[in-house]
Design a binder for these strands. Structure first.
Lengths: 343, 343
DNA sequence: GTTAGCACTCTTTCGACTCGAGTGCTAACA
DNA sequence: TGTTAGCACTCGAGTCGAAAGAGTGCTAAC
């Protein structure tokens, strides 16, 4: 059995109507609402075919049809019109992102919040630091005798602070010396690149401060490594989905939301081909049983050809894919532009 | 009508049983389960009295009784035994707090998470910085020509980082000088305490770096002030309450959780007499319609006689007050001890 | 003052029934 | 050969009433 244009139109009608109403769609509805020029009986026949092809399904005999995951997939791949995103929404995104008064991460968070509101889905934003950070600047500050603060700036202006216990005899000058040495030797390097001779060089020159160096090095390596491993993830609009009729069961909701609180789950959801720009995972395609009733759309954005972050949208499988994809696209594009302007 | 000891026992039984079962409690249940030595008929009479006094109520004729807000209040004020908190839980809290490897705020967050799990409630932690912070250490670091990082440590080891645009001609030495001057003059002071002559002193000595100082001062004052205004609030276990039978309606849940996402709501919930150490607000006592089915327990902890933070617990009115209060007490005490040790 | 007994109330549960939406199939039609 | 009208059939949702069960309030006896 193959798809002809009429079957496509009917599938599209089923998807669109179901997205709109959340009710199974009957043949009569389609013949009346989407005037395809044929009677409900004909549509019934076609629908039987579509069901046989696995694109739509019946919750029970004598109910209308509902798109299956495969049906949504077909729709997304072949039928979905790149909806002309509402100009307003687009401007909103751009305005939020270009409002430069705040720090980048804040701007991002605001935009995602807005996106969550507009689409009524949950948004996820992921700053991808998976490349293993390199050291940009390190400085030890004497806070009080016996206590120092280590300030570390890694690639991409990310800042980390750690307190450090040091011998009470250490002076400000000692710390400056240590900072300088470490900067000279380790700047621009990843943890993996530290070589034995570099480290020995540091230690040789700083025998007196050896204890501090030791401790600082350990912290530093843990920071650079940890940053590499778990990416920063922010989530917004976690409760938005509660409005959807498919989540009227509290247990379902609880399981879902609890899953989304787990970083591993989010990470897996956000995985995907970073090259194609935008990825859509529908229902079971997510590979996670906890979110089998949800779809995920992820857009990654690049700076200088490297993927530096991802923005994602999680909603029920019955979500407005066209709008969502457009919005995310705009979002990612605007972000890329903003980064470019920034340089 | 006045309370006698038997009425008290019956009220206690109603509260305890309802907390346990979440079902209205009948006279028969009480006479069987809590052997008060009287028959169900007698208990029925007493319950009618208690109802008249407004301490318990009937969802409908021919249902058992349920404690009213006033009933819970009476229980908390007069009947509740300071439950000997499970030693295990106590140790857990202490262990979490005393595990010093992490930063203070992380430790706090972990403890609250644990508390949320044990009590099956939502926990709130609020770092009260309303006093207006004083400056402990300030340092400007040269990141690259034209760009500096300002590191600020305020009272209580709180760290803030801000990037700063500076003239490209500024050297590391310039910044060190500025840092030193600002430290010397402003250390230990709140924004309000800066005096014209102090500032003039700084500017006079640093005409060349005036632009940087200007900018740094502005940022600094905004940081110290902002910290003062909005307190930092962390929430955990927001979904725990979903397990409770009183929240089986999604809409209710949604409203509740959305309210709890608002800082103002949380702030108001956490308000209360900071002197008495622990505050219990039951149902309508919270003054917020959105959380009228919830109770809030707040404990504040002090360092050097000043309240520096609060830990709170939000759950359904039908919550285990005895355990919750004990846990929070332990929590606050352990925190205070931990702060003391720290000094 | 306490208790046993009983009538009464109200919710919950269950099955029977109806209604309506939607289907699949067949036969007629263009 | 594809399309359509018609019709029997299925199944869920909603309604109704009866029965069961839990718990009460009241009364009369102890």
């Amino acid at each position: 059995m193959e798809m002809d244009s009429r079957k496509q139109k009917i599938l599209e009608a089923v998807v669109l109507d179901y997205i709109e109403t959340a009710e199974p769609v009957g043949s009569r509805t389609i013949s009346k609402k989407y005037n395809l020029g044929v009677s409900s009986a004909t549509i019934r026949n076609e629908m039987a075919d579509l069901e046989e092809m696995g694109l739509i399904e019946q919750p029970h005999t004598s109910a209308g049809r509902v798109p299956s995951d495969a049906g949504y997939r077909y729709y997304v791949d072949y039928l979905m019109a790149q909806s002309d995103i509402q100009e307003e929404a687009k401007k909103l995104i751009q305005k939020a992102i270009h409002d430069k008064r705040q720090q980048v991460s804040d701007v991002l968070r605001d935009s995602m919040k807005m996106l969550a509101e507009v689409t009524n889905c949950t948004t996820v934003m992921m700053l991808d630091e998976s490349k293993g950070s390199t050291l940009q600047l390190l400085q030890l500050l004497l806070v009080e005798p016996g206590k120092a603060l280590m300030v570390i700036i890694t690639e991409g202006d990310k800042i980390e602070n750690r307190f450090l216990e040091i011998p009470k005899t250490m002076t400000r000058e000692d710390l400056d010396l240590v900072s300088m040495m470490m900067n000279q030797n380790l700047r621009g390097l990843k943890v993996d690149d530290w070589q034995r001779n570099i480290l020995e060089n540091i230690f040789q020159n700083l025998t007196r401060q050896r204890q501090v160096v030791d401790c600082a090095l350990e912290m530093l390596s843990s920071i650079l490594n940890v940053q590499g491993k778990d990416k920063k993830i922010y989530l917004d609009g976690g409760l938005n989905m509660l409005s959807q009729p498919e989540f009227k069961d509290v247990n379902k909701v609880k399981n879902l939301l609890q899953s989304l609180e787990q970083q591993e789950v989010l990470s897996q959801l956000m995985e995907g081909d970073t090259e194609t720009g935008i990825t859509v995972k529908i229902g079971s395609e997510t590979g996670l049983d906890e979110v089998k009733d949800c779809s995920v759309i992820v857009a990654s954005y690049k700076v200088k050809g490297e993927t530096v972050g991802k923005v994602g949208l999680i909603g029920p499988t019955r979500m407005d894919y066209a709008t969502a994809v457009s919005m995310l696209n705009t979002m990612a594009q605007t972000l890329e532009e903003a980064y470019k302007d920034n340089e």
